[in-house]
């Protein structure tokens, strides 16, 4: 999970994930189009994303296609976000109870 958080802690890599979210299954050249990053930088970022399992690749003939793999993000959501969400909902429920209690008083 450390690898996922580290991979996500970079705006260039998040941008690459966003590009795959909009259009899945792109080649390196397509992913580089219109970006200010060098091809070498994109390659390096993709490598980090792959090691974190956020990007999966498949070959189609001689073309290497990159796919967004959302599962690690999903696992983070299950493990971390939902648990915090539960706490926040409890806070809102308590707040409502207090405010309504005030109105009564």
């Amino acid at each position: 999970m450390d690898k996922v958080f580290k991979a996500l802690a970079d705006s260039s890599r998040r941008k690459l994930l966003d590009r795959l979210r909009i259009r899945n299954g792109q080649m390196l050249g397509e992913l580089c189009e219109g970006l200010s990053m060098t091809r070498q930088a994109v390659t390096k970022h993709l490598h980090i994303l792959q090691r974190a399992n956020l990007v999966a690749t498949r070959w189609r003939g001689r073309e290497k296609l990159h796919y967004l793999n959302p599962l690690p993000i999903h696992e983070i959501a299950e493990r971390w976000i939902k648990k915090f969400e539960h706490g926040r909902l409890q806070v809102l429920a308590d707040l409502k109870k207090n405010l309504e209690g005030d109105t009564d008083g």
Binding site: N24, G25, N53, A56, R58, Y67, N69, P70, L71
Partner: peptide
């Protein structure tokens, strides 16, 4: 691209 595809990878 003339196809639609998703690839999911998970380690269990």
């Amino acid at each position: 691209m003339a196809d639609s595809r998703f690839v999911y990878v998970t380690y269990i």
